[in-house]
Design a protein around this nucleic acid. Structure first.
Lengths: 137, 137
DNA sequence: TTGCAATTGATAATCAATCTCAATAGATTG
DNA sequence: CAATCTATTGAGATTGATTATCAATTGCAA
């Protein structure tokens, strides 16, 4: 009856579960390719396209964070469900969730000041974490 | 004598000038591909690889801003030379340069707090500018 | 169990970006 | 001005990530 929302009947498959689980096992951002080869190495026969689809769905459902760096999309299981940002190690991919109300307010204010609507913001900090910095010396 | 800095003797070519000029003519972010086809349409015989190289050089010299969105690199002639961020219209690409010392300080503090070194940050706000919002109604 | 549409996955296609390398053309020197 | 040296160019090949295709598979509801 509802032509606008076709109910989006999502089916549960072991593939989707595998992707979600694999994502939960890590505490840093990973690319679809990395996740795919990790799953393959673990014996799974899951296809690459399926990993891409599953990750896109998780991100759309808010169950995963998504960001782009250096030409590739990175995903991470989303811990705190609210809006937040990340401090990411450029070497090992480990990420720390950070929230900053001040930044949110600033972004909103700047957009409003210039007459922009529906503002979204991209705020991420990349650096080298203490462990990786030590390892590099 | 300086083995670290080989003087980087940059030559001046009409191609580099063309890219710089084309970039200056716009007031929003453009991709290398867009700039290349615009130049071609205007009669230039410049090659795509050259546009990529010129843009990378401009960005490295601080003469252009660079950001990534939706899998492609976007460039813009840089007005103010210092570090700053952008408020970008997702519809027409127009960009407003914004600077916020508070955000810089916050990013530095967050990185330091978690033991991260060499922090860089990505801070951009996307929205729909007043003109585009009006046009969409 | 049956039927059907959502899902999968191997592979082809796409798209941005980079690399290769021979030809070209700034800059410098005589 | 001419010769020389080498950075730069550009057409096309290549890489790498992501998406599209489509026949075979498989949840799931009746």
């Amino acid at each position: 009856m509802n032509a606008i929302e076709p109910a989006a009947a999502k089916r549960r498959t072991w593939q989707r579960d595998a992707v979600r689980d694999a994502l939960l096992e890590r505490d840093g951002f990973v690319s679809a390719q990395m996740l795919h080869s990790a799953l393959r190495d673990a014996g799974s026969t899951i296809g690459l396209a399926t990993v891409y689809r599953a990750l896109a769905d998780l991100a759309a459902d808010g169950a995963a964070d998504h960001l782009q760096h250096d030409g590739e999309s990175l995903y991470r299981a989303c811990g705190s469900s609210g809006h937040h940002h990340h401090l990411i190690c450029r070497s090992c991919g480990r990420a720390v969730e950070i929230s900053a109300d001040a930044v949110e307010a600033w972004a909103r204010a700047v957009a409003a000041e210039h007459g922009f609507r529906d503002a979204e913001h991209v705020v991420d900090v990349f650096g080298t974490c203490a462990d990786c910095a030590r390892a590099a010396d």
